[in-house]
Amino acid sequence: SEIEGEVDKATNPSNRQEDWEYIIGFCDQINKELEGPQIAVRLLAHKIQSPQEWEAVQALTVLEACMKNCGRRFHNEVGKFRFLNELIKVVSPKYLGDRVSEKVKTKVIELLYSWTVALPEESKIKDAYYMLKRQGIVMFDPVIPADRTLIPSPPPRPKNP
């Protein structure tokens, strides 16, 4: 699928920095395909669990961008336990948590929390987040910088060189 090629480009560990051309290309591809969101979240879950930190960090940036740019269809897929469980595995010491960097775990928790605030209708996101709090995996709600809250605005495009 073209989506697979796009996610590989957007999360490639040899990218020197987050590549917004590829990230936007991935979002556009999701919006074009009927099954785009379902395929995308499955691929992203796999990348987020990468043992390479930089690949995982880029995948989380892509996920955040998709939540801003791919609309309700994408929110609905993220709001299923099928996908949320893959994020829970990343932060839980019972699963991958002990092998995942703090940077990746912090970003996962920040994203989950920001969605509980921005998308209250996606009740499973709240269920997942509060389960992590009950388990003591999340000790306090993170402070989300204003520019990182989920508002449906286009992400910054790189300036022309």
């Binding site: 299923k80 336990f81 469980n85 829970i88 595995k89 839980s92 997942a128 389960m131």
Partner: peptide
């Protein structure tokens, strides 16, 4: 029907 069965199969990870 597909959506209903998908909903039934969608569970939070056991911890």
């Amino acid at each position: 029907l597909g959506e209903e069965s998908e909903e039934r199969d969608d569970h939070l990870l056991p911890m």
